[in-house]
Design a protein around this nucleic acid. Structure first.
Length: 532
RNA sequence: GGCUCCAUCGUCUAAUGGCAGGACACCUGAGUUUCGAUCAGGCAAUGCGGGUUCGAUUCCCGCUGGAGUCACCA
C-alpha cells in the first residue's frame, strides 16, 4: 500500500468500562480512517499490570461493536470468552508485545545513542535541550520551550515500557500516521515527538480533540454515580434520625450491601459502585450514565448515542443535527472540530433518543424493545408479563410508547401499570390532576364509574373502540365533554392521568382487568368519602 | 504555583471584518379524552479593558475566568 494511506487507531487502557469520551475518540478516529479509505486499528494499552483486566478489554470490544464502530486490525471477540487477533502488525496488546521483546531494541538504541540512562532501576529518556513545536491539526502551532522539557522514565523498574515509550514505538510499527486523541494528551506530545526524533521515526499528524465534562463543569467519571447516590441518600436521611438510618441499613442489606460498606460510603471513605447501585435500587432511582454500557442498559439506541457524541466538538457546518455514522464518516474534518471543551447534556441526548425511537417503524420498535428487555437485568421479566396480557400486546404497547418514551427503560416504566396487580392500582388523592378529574366531585365520579362498569359488563363483544364510541355518544347526549367519563376511567385503570389513548389501553387490559380495576377504584373512592 | 490550551443564549453550537442563526431545556398558546406525544409562537448569548478599522463577536495586546498537565497511570 502507498505511504500516504491514512492509518488511525484507538488505544484504550482496559482498566474499566468504555467511557463516552473514549467512545467519541474512537468514533472520530474511525470516521477519519473510513473517509480516507484508510485503516483503523484497535490497540490495547495494558502496561499498567495492576489495573488492567481482560474482562474490561472484552467489555470495550463489545461496546465498540455495539456502537457500530468496526476496526481493521486488533483483538476481536470470537465467541464467549475467546479473543482472537486480526491483522499483520500484532500482537495488539502491549503486554503481549513486551513478551515478544519488541521494545528492547529501541531501549538499546536510545542508550547507545546517549539518549537514555539508568536511574534507580528505571530507564530515563534525555530531552534534547531544544524547544519542540507541534503543528496540531485542530489547535495550530503549540511550542514548549526547552527548559520546560524534563527527562522522563521510558522503562519502569519492572521492565515494562511506560505509556510514552510504548505509544511511540507501537504507532511507528503499526504505521499509524494520524493520532486523534483527547486534549489531556496535549502536554505529552512533546515527549512523544522527542522520542520519535531520537529514534528516527516519522512524526504522525496530531489532532487533539476537546474534552467532555458534566453539565456542572466537573469531570465525567465513574465517581459521578457514587456522588449522586450519596446525595440522594443524604436527602432521604435528612432529619430522619436514627430510625431512618436503621431503615436504610436494613433495606440495603436486602440488596446485599453490608453495613460497614455503607457507613464508609456515606463517610466518603469509599466510592464503591456496588453500594451506589444498591442505593439506587433501594431508593428507586436510576444512577447517572457515564459509560457506554450504562446508556445501553438504560435503553438508549447506539445510533442516537453516536449522533449526539459526534456533535460534541464537531458539527457538519449547517443546521443539520440528525445523522448517522456513515454521514459522519463522509463529512468529518479537523477544520470543523472545536477547540473548547463541551459539556455532556443527558437531557439533550434523551431528546435525540426519543426522536430516534419515533423514527423506528412500529414493528421494529416492538422487536428491539423486546430484545432490550430480555437482555436487561432490570426488565427481563417485563417481556414475559406483557405477553401474558395477550398476543398482540407488545405491538400495541410499542405503538403507544414509541411516540412517548425517550428510552426503552422509560417505556417500561410508563407501561408498568398494565402489568400491576389489579388490586395494586391506586390513585394518589393528593395529586392535582387526580383531584381535578376525580376526587373533587367524588359523588359524580362514583356515578360515572358505576355507569361505565354496567356498560362494559353488559357489552356483547368487548372492545376499546366500543367503549370509546359509547363514551362519546353519552357525553354528547348530556352535553358534557368526554373527559368527564374518560378521565375517571383512565385513573381507575392506571392510577394516573397519563396513559396511551383510552381505547388502546382498554384493549390491552381486556374486559376482566378493566372491570376489576374499576371496582377497585370505586372501593378506594368510597373509603375516601367515608373517612373524609 | 510553572507550563499549555480554551472563552457566542442555561447547555450543544452556526456565522462573518458588515442584521448574531439553529438544536436541547424553559415559558406561552392551539389542538387533543389526558399527556412527558404533536403544532405554532416566545425568552435567552458574543466575559472585561484597550488597540487596528468607516465598521470588531471576528484580527492584535492585556486582564479575568475555566480546563489540562507537571508519576516508575495511561
Amino acid at each position: 500500500m502507498s505511504d500516504s494511506q491514512v492509518v488511525t487507531r484507538f488505544a484504550p487502557s482496559p482498566t474499566g468500562a468504555l467511557h463516552v469520551g473514549g467512545a467519541r475518540t474512537a468514533l472520530f478516529n474511525w470516521a477519519y480512517a473510513r473517509q480516507h479509505g484508510g485503516k483503523f486499528i484497535l490497540r490495547i494499552e495494558d502496561t499498567d499490570r495492576a489495573r488492567s483486566t481482560e474482562e474490561a478489554m472484552r467489555g470495550m470490544l463489545e461496546d465498540l461493536a455495539w456502537l457500530g464502530i468496526d476496526w481493521d486490525e486488533g483483538p476481536s471477540l470470537v465467541t464467549g470468552d475467546l479473543v482472537a487477533e486480526e491483522g499483520d502488525n500484532g500482537p495488539y496488546c502491549q503486554s503481549a508485545r513486551l513478551e515478544s521483546g519488541i521494545y528492547q531494541k529501541y531501549f538499546d538504541q536510545l542508550v547507545e545513542a546517549g539518549r537514555a540512562y539508568e536511574d534507580d532501576g528505571a530507564l530515563r529518556f534525555r530531552m534534547p535541550g531544544t524547544a519542540i513545536t507541534v503543528a496540531d491539526e485542530i489547535l495550530g502551532q503549540v511550542t514548549v520551550e526547552a527548559e520546560q522539557l524534563e527527562d522522563f522514565v521510558i522503562r519502569k523498574a519492572d521492565g515494562f515500557p511506560t505509556y510514552h515509550m510504548a505509544v511511540v514505538v507501537d504507532d511507528e510499527l503499526m504505521g499509524v500516521n494520524v493520532v486523534i486523541r483527547g486534549q489531556e494528551h496535549l502536554n505529552n506530545t512533546s515527549k512523544h515527538v522527542a522520542i520519535q526524533e531520537a529514534l528516527g521515526f516519522e512524526r504522525p499528524r496530531y489532532a487533539h480533540i476537546p474534552l467532555i465534562f458534566n453539565v456542572d463543569g466537573s469531570k465525567m467519571s465513574k465517581r459521578d454515580k457514587a456522588k449522586a447516590a450519596r446525595r440522594w441518600m443524604e436527602e432521604w436521611l435528612k432529619d430522619g434520625g436514627e430510625e431512618r438510618w436503621a431503615e436504610a441499613v436494613a433495606g440495603l442489606e436486602g440488596v446485599d450491601v453490608g453495613r460497614e460498606d455503607f457507613d464508609g460510603f456515606m463517610g466518603k471513605e469509599n466510592d464503591s459502585p456496588s453500594v451506589a447501585e444498591g442505593i439506587g435500587v433501594f431508593l428507586g432511582k436510576a444512577l447517572p450514565e457515564v459509560d457506554v454500557a450504562d446508556f445501553k442498559e438504560s435503553g438508549y439506541l447506539a445510533a442516537a448515542l453516536c449522533n449526539y457524541l459526534s456533535l460534541l466538538g464537531w458539527n457538519p457546518g449547517d443546521d443539520l443535527e440528525k445523522f448517522d455514522n456513515a454521514f459522519l464518516a463522509e463529512k468529518f474534518s479537523f477544520e470543523r472540530v472545536n477547540k473548547s471543551a463541551a459539556k455532556f447534556d443527558r437531557v439533550k441526548l434523551a431528546s435525540f433518543n426519543g426522536d430516534a425511537l419515533k423514527e423506528l417503524p412500529p414493528e421494529v420498535f416492538a422487536t428491539q424493545w423486546r430484545e432490550w428487555c430480555e437482555s436487561s437485568g432490570q426488565y427481563s421479566k417485563f417481556a414475559e408479563d406483557v405477553d401474558k396480557l395477550g398476543a398482540q400486546s407488545f405491538g400495541l404497547l410499542g405503538e403507544a410508547y414509541k411516540e412517548r418514551a425517550k428510552t426503552f427503560g422509560e417505556a417500561c416504566e410508563m407501561a408498568g401499570f398494565f402489568l400491576a396487580d389489579d388490586g395494586g392500582i391506586e390513585f394518589d388523592a393528593g395529586q392535582k390532576q387526580i383531584r381535578k378529574n376525580l376526587t373533587n366531585q367524588a359523588e359524580a365520579s362514583v356515578g360515572v364509574l358505576e355507569e361505565l362498569k354496567a356498560f362494559i359488563g353488559g357489552m356483547e363483544v368487548f372492545s376499546g373502540e366500543g367503549v370509546h364510541v359509547w363514551i362519546k355518544a353519552t357525553a354528547e347526549e348530556r352535553e358534557v365533554n368526554m373527559g368527564k367519563f374518560a378521565q375517571p376511567l383512565r385513573i381507575a385503570l392506571s392510577g394516573t392521568t397519563v396513559t396511551p389513548p383510552i381505547d388502546l389501553t382498554l384493549d390491552v387490559l381486556g374486559r376482566e382487568k378493566v372491570l376489576a380495576r374499576i371496582e377497585g377504584c370505586l372501593g378506594q373512592l368510597k373509603s375516601l368519602e367515608g373517612v373524609g
